[in-house]
Design a protein around this nucleic acid. Structure first.
Length: 593
RNA sequence: CGGGGCGUGGCGCAGCUUGGUAGCGCACUACUUUGGGGUAGUAGGGGUCGUGGGUUCAAAUCCCGCCGCUCCGACCA
């Protein structure tokens, strides 16, 4: 391919819309253009990258025995109503784009395909003898993200590989889950990415075990915790750890203190000379449940700890046996709207009386009380006095009406000891989620009543797994992980071209002739090579080659008369001056070892 | 949705406070020049100043509404 024919449009200035390096570089180097908020065109170079990635994905999925298919993007609402997800995915802050056709039928644009595939499986897979089956597709997904950002990183229209497996037994599901884990490791390694598998929360998709694959990069939206012995890694949403020991509180008189202006843990501890680990803080939150009921929550936590919202929501939905639509701290305004007296925010104790909720307009009349282990394990502690500007010192659970059952509701943090090995410490890193595998279990097959006949002739719901890779996101994550000041440094396996031949001065006939010859030699060797034949100054062509990030560059320049050229590796900028035949052969052997 | 910022040729911006000829850099076209890290010069093309209304003799500029984009929080591949 000749650069002069490539519609290569590079920008010197960074478009104002781009914040992070990968987004800026993809725009500047002419890989993508924004068409709308969270909607991007993949320009020809980008499409080549995407195709490189998808062919690796196809090879590895196929190796793992999965079958490629292509499902519709337009989904009848009935399917989603059968699984019970229509309401949650369309109403309020739902992420599904939906519309009505001319007959008034409701349709949604697929944000994910469990419904479609499960219903098809239910029709096609009648017997355990057909199982297991693993189906995948590579296709555009639509999600009306609350906040699209960072270019392809969180788009509203994006390319995803999604796979769904169907099994007669849980053991079979686990075997495929393991196979997918291995396939994913191979895929990311082949794409040249440093991707860490981490334990993950299964979120809205649901199910039992789940693991995310994180490309480590400072621009990542997730915080991941990794043990320094390399044996444990988890998303902070899910991560567990041993909290630091509390500083023991010596015995003292249980008294009530006036604490004006000490509504925050920081100011309270500073004024009173307490350590936060000696205090039980109580967070007051409002949970809106799937049945639209509004439940006030009191969550007790040792004051040096942070609440983990995901763990809280999971604990709550287990307790109430239904989903949680929203959970947020209660505000002064909300309390007023309920017609209640102001709550003693900043001085709430675990035993705050339900009476404060009496007469609430729409809230449930009593608190759901939850406690983290760090709080319940304290024998003596300070806590709020349930009145404005009052705290109680040297209190204990017996005084407060009994020690509650504790559970894990806190954030694990860097520096803490690991549960699997107390000698190991957690470190934190930012990560970009490029893949996620789930053991769904029978959640969807039961909800949609999709069954097969088992060995003993009885109908049974499928065991299911699902496995996603954000293809377009992966492409950008690769740039985030592989770039320098001058531009992109694509891993060779997913680069749009493997090499570029730059003729420094095309008006020099010797250079031009040697350039064409080198280009032809490489083409004939099966190398995906680009020839920069533009009538531009050498500097411009070098800058562009660096920016677009082609892994290898051969420069035909002033030494062309002697038959010598330069061979340069983009990633480390190593340059060798070589006779041209040697340069092409050493390039070919580097690319086709 | 809550809270900031911004909408002026393809890209990056100035002009707006104090109303009166729409400007700069990059990119683009032609010619000249240069020819190994975004060469220099000359000439040129391209803008309903997001949009609707209002104030005014006169609005990019002042006032009101709407739309869009973007950043910080709740969603996720």
């Amino acid at each position: 391919m000749r650069v002069s024919r490539q519609m290569l449009v590079t920008l010197r200035d960074v478009p104002a819309e781009a914040e992070i390096a990968s987004h800026q570089l993809l725009l500047r180097a002419g890989y993508i253009r924004r068409v709308g908020s969270g909607i991007y065109a993949y320009l020809p170079f980008m499409w080549k990258v995407i195709q490189r990635i998808t062919s690796i994905v196809r090879e590895e999925m196929s190796r793992a025995g999965a079958l490629e298919t292509l499902l519709p993007q337009l989904h009848p609402s009935e399917l989603w109503k059968r699984s019970g997800r229509w309401q949650g995915y369309t109403a309020g802050e739902g992420i599904m784009f939906h519309l009505e056709d001319r007959q008034g039928r409701e349709l949604g644009l697929g944000p994910t395909h469990e419904e479609v595939i499960t219903s098809l499986a239910g029709e096609l897979l009648r017997s355990y003898r057909q199982l297991p089956v693993n189906l995948y597709q590579i296709q555009t997904k639509f999600r009306d993200e609350i906040r699209p950002r960072f270019g392809l990183m969180r788009g509203r229209e994006f390319i995803m590989k999604d796979a769904y497996s169907f099994h007669a037994t849980e053991e079979s599901l686990q075997a495929t889950y393991t196979a997918m884990d291995e396939a994913y490791r191979r895929i990311f390694a082949r794409c040249g990415l440093d991707a860490v598998p981490v334990d993950a929360d299964s979120g809205a998709i649901g199910g039992a075990a789940s693991q995310e694959f994180m490309v480590t990069a400072d621009a990542g939206e997730d915080l991941i915790l990794i043990s320094d012995d390399g044996l444990y890694a988890a998303n902070q949403e899910k991560a567990i750890s041993c909290p630091h020991e509390a500083i023991p509180l010596e015995t003292g008189e249980p008294i009530t203190l006036k604490t004006p202006g000490q509504g925050s843990i920081e100011s309270l501890c500073e004024t009173q000379g307490w350590h936060p680990s000696q205090v039980v803080k109580v967070l007051i939150l409002m949970a809106r449940m799937e049945d639209e009921s509004e439940k006030p929550l009191l969550v007790s936590l040792r004051a040096d700890q942070e609440l983990n919202q995901v763990k809280l929501v999971n604990a709550l939905s287990r307790l109430m046996d239904q989903g949680v639509l929203d959970c947020h701290p209660i505000t002064v305004e909300e309390t007023a709207r309920q017609g209640l007296a102001p709550l003693p925010l900043g001085a709430i104790g675990p035993d705050l009386d339900d009476a404060v909720l009496k007469g609430a307009r729409s809230w449930a009349p009593s608190f759901i009380r939850l406690a983290d282990n760090t709080a319940t394990e304290l024998d003596r502690f300070h806590c709020g006095g349930n009145n404005h500007d009052l705290h109680r010192c040297h209190s204990d659970w017996e005084t407060l009406g009994g020690r509650p059952g504790g559970q894990d509701l806190r954030n694990a943090r860097a520096g803490e000891a690991c549960v699997h090995n107390p000698k190991a410490r957690l470190q934190d890193k930012r990560g970009i989620e490029v893949g996620h595998i789930f053991q769904l279990g029978r959640k969807y097959s039961q909800a949609m009543d999709c069954r097969f006949t088992n060995e003993s002739g009885r109908d049974e719901a499928f065991w299911m797994g699902c496995y996603g890779i954000g293809i377009s996101r992966l492409a950008q994550a690769a740039v985030e992980q592989h770039h320098d000041d001058a531009g992109i440094c694509w891993p060779t396996a997913i680069a749009p071209f493997e090499a570029i031949v730059v003729v420094a001065n095309i008006q020099d006939e010797t250079q031009l002739a040697l350039g064409e010859a080198t280009y032809t030699t490489l083409l004939e060797a099966g190398i995906d090579v680009l020839l920069d034949d533009r009538k531009e100054r050498a500097g411009v062509k070098f800058k562009d080659a660096d920016l677009i990030g082609i892994p290898w560059r051969i420069v035909i320049g002033r030494d062309a008369a002697e038959g010598n050229v330069e061979l340069i590796e983009r990633s480390n900028r190593e340059m060798r001056k070589l006779p041209h035949a040697e340069a092409t052969s050493s390039l070919v052997s580097a690319l086709r070892p």
